[in-house]
Design a protein around this nucleic acid. Sequence first.
DNA 1: AAAGATTGAGTCCTCAATCTTT
DNA 2: AAAGATTGAGGACTCAATCTTT
Lengths: 178, 178
Amino acid sequence: MESRPLDDERLTLMGLLHETWASLAARGAAQLACHGVAPAELDVCLRLARSPEGLLRMTDLAAQTTLTSSGITRVVDRLVERGWVTRRSCATDRRTTYAVITDTGRDLLAAVLPGQIALIQDWLIEPLTATGALGEFETALRAIRDHTAPCAVAGADGVGLLEPGPGPAVPAQAVARS
Amino acid sequence: MESRPLDDERLTLMGLLHETWASLAARGAAQLACHGVAPAELDVCLRLARSPEGLLRMTDLAAQTTLTSSGITRVVDRLVERGWVTRRSCATDRRTTYAVITDTGRDLLAAVLPGQIALIQDWLIEPLTATGALGEFETALRAIRDHTAPCAVAGADGVGLLEPGPGPAVPAQAVARS
DNA sequence: AAAGATTGAGTCCTCAATCTTT
DNA sequence: AAAGATTGAGGACTCAATCTTT
């Protein structure tokens, strides 16, 4: 009967989630490194490529990723340097800047995504289907996501990210650490 | 029929996992920040506190966490500075250094863990039990973990981590950790 | 030679401050 | 005043090199 918080099983579950994510992320990052791209950079390119005209405001990119507005500025800086993305100013509102994916950027995605998908297939999908838990897993993730980040939809600008939810209000972009 | 890799549903699932983990991690980190501790630091203290004599070799700490040996050196540096951990040299093998948790370090855990557990309860356990997916979720995580990091046990050094899997060999330490 | 630990250099990200535009 | 974007300063982590001990 170990009831010390030290051995609380909830802490263990969280640790398992951490370990699982870290392991998968590391494999993906390692493969990307062979192409000279970082995970956050690919993430930005992917979101741009999926957008209507291959473009998104800096602010929206920040809202859609785990990065701050400042972080997006630097990631886009790097992507521009490598020719995968271009910056374009907005005609109607001169405060906003668009990040636009280039053809070279799309080529990068075409070159890199198949490998990433294969990795996900082998290390995430495979073990899940083998145990018949794939459907349940996705359902669980959505349950958690919907509970913590109700409206994480594009189009709805940064709104709703700092909901004064039921629990202790999170310092918003509190993603910060110390 | 969108079959472009851009919209592959596996990419979406991975994104959902990322988002979920990032959201939970951010909440935990924000709460820890109020106590002046970083997640990696708490993780080290927790593992030390759970060990037989409250001590672990630097190398073993690296193996148990997502940090490299170098990273552990710096984390322990910080913990020592704050009095939560002490370094002790080994009598039988003068190459090894032990990190030992102090009483103050245990006090920190006692002060911080309840809050962390409450957070996990509210944002992870709660939504999972609400949808009756808690058991399935843990099973799924273990399936993935067991598939990617078969020997995640201390004592078994970094062996078997760079499996010549299907994709390009993983740059080792990138995946290292358990 | 290999294992254990540390250090130097460099990267990436955050916060807080700043500037421009609305 | 507030929104959007960027910049300066600083923190945390990695890799590669180093030193000591086995």
